[in-house]
C-alpha cells in the first residue's frame, strides 16, 4: 500500500512538472508566432455570402477570397477553421485560431478582448418578415406587437434593445442568424433582424426562404462596420493586416471580389 501511495505521488509530481514546463515556454510576439508557423488560421462560420460551400463542396465566399488575398500579401498560408461563433474570443486566446474574419461587426464590447482591424465594409440591420404578413407589417409602429428574434449578442440584438418602439415586444435570442430565418419560416417569431448582406443572399426566390422578404422601410440601430478580429495586444500583426487590407483595396483586388458577391456598395475606402 505504501508503494501505491508513492507511485501516486510520483504521478502527481510528473503531471505538475509537465504543466509548469509548458507554461514556461512563452511565446514571442504574436506576429513572430504566426510567421514562424507560416500559417494563418482564420476562424469563420458558414454563412452566405461571406463563407459558404459551393455546389462542389468547396469553401468560397466574399470573406474567403478576401482573406486569401490578404494572406498572400502577408506571405502566410490561410487555413480556414469553422468555429462556434459564441467561442470566437476564447478560440483566439487559446491560439486555436489567429484571426476572426467572418463579417464581424465592430463593437466596443469586443474591443475589450480583441484587437480589431480598420473597418472594410459597412452593414446595417434589416427586418425580415413572412411575405404573407406584408400587409400587416409595413413600418416600425406596425411591428410593435410582433414577436422578434435575432442572434444572441449580435448587432441585431443590440439594435432591438436600443429602439424605444420595440421595448415591449417579445424577444427571443437565437443561436445564429440562420436560425432567425428558420424561426420565421416556422412561425415561432414574426420579425427577425439580421445583417443586410446575409438577408439579401438568403431570402427570396431560389432559396428555401422564398416565402420570406426584407422589410425595406424599417431601419433600426446605427450604421455598423465589419472588421477583422485579432488577439488582444498584437500591434505588429494588426499593422501588417491593416497594411495588407489597404494593399488589396488599392490594387483593385478587393473591388473585384466585392463585385462578384454583389457587395460593391457596402465596401469602404481604405485611406
Amino acid at each position: 500500500m505504501k508503494r501505491k501511495i508513492f507511485a501516486l505521488v510520483l504521478v502527481v509530481a510528473l503531471v505538475a512538472s509537465v504543466a509548469v514546463g509548458l507554461a514556461a515556454c512563452n511565446k514571442d510576439t504574436d506576429w513572430d508566432y504566426i510567421a514562424n508557423k507560416g500559417e494563418m488560421i482564420i476562424g469563420i462560420t458558414i454563412f452566405r455570402p461571406m463563407n459558404y460551400y459551393d455546389n462542389n463542396g468547396n469553401l468560397t465566399g466574399f470573406e474567403t477570397e478576401f482573406a486569401t488575398a490578404v494572406c498572400e500579401k502577408l506571405g502566410v498560408t490561410p487555413k480556414f477553421q469553422v468555429v462556434n461563433w459564441d467561442n470566437k474570443i476564447i478560440e483566439l486566446q487559446s491560439y486555436n485560431i489567429d484571426l476572426v474574419w467572418n463579417g464581424m461587426t465592430i463593437l466596443d464590447t469586443l474591443r475589450a478582448n480583441m484587437d480589431i482591424s480598420d473597418p472594410y465594409m459597412s452593414n446595417r440591420q434589416v427586418a425580415v418578415i413572412r411575405t404573407a404578413d406584408a400587409g400587416a407589417y409595413t413600418d416600425l409602429t406596425s411591428i410593435s406587437n410582433a414577436a422578434l428574434g435575432a442572434e444572441r449578442g449580435s448587432a441585431g440584438e443590440r439594435a432591438i434593445e436600443s429602439t424605444a418602439e420595440l421595448a415591449d415586444n417579445d424577444y427571443t435570442a437565437l443561436e445564429a442568424q440562420s436560425d432567425v430565418l428558420l424561426e420565421l419560416k416556422s412561425g415561432a417569431i414574426d420579425v427577425g433582424f439580421i445583417d443586410i448582406v446575409m438577408a439579401t443572399a438568403s431570402v427570396g426566390e431560389g432559396t428555401d426562404y422564398a416565402d420570406l422578404m426584407v422589410l425595406d422601410n424599417v431601419m433600426i440601430g446605427d450604421d455598423e462596420y465589419y472588421g477583422v478580429g485579432l488577439r488582444k495586444n498584437s500591434p505588429e500583426t494588426l499593422k501588417r493586416v491593416n497594411d495588407a487590407i489597404k494593399a488589396v483595396y488599392d490594387d483593385g483586388t478587393l473591388g473585384k471580389i466585392a463585385e462578384k458577391y454583389g457587395l460593391t456598395n457596402a465596401l469602404l475606402p481604405q485611406d
Partner: peptide, 18 residues
Amino acid sequence: IAVEEIIFAAQGIINSYA
C-alpha cells in the same frame, strides 16, 4: 467546439444553400 458532426454539418448546409 465546431467538430463537424452531423448536426453541425447540417447547419453548414442550411447556411450555405438556405
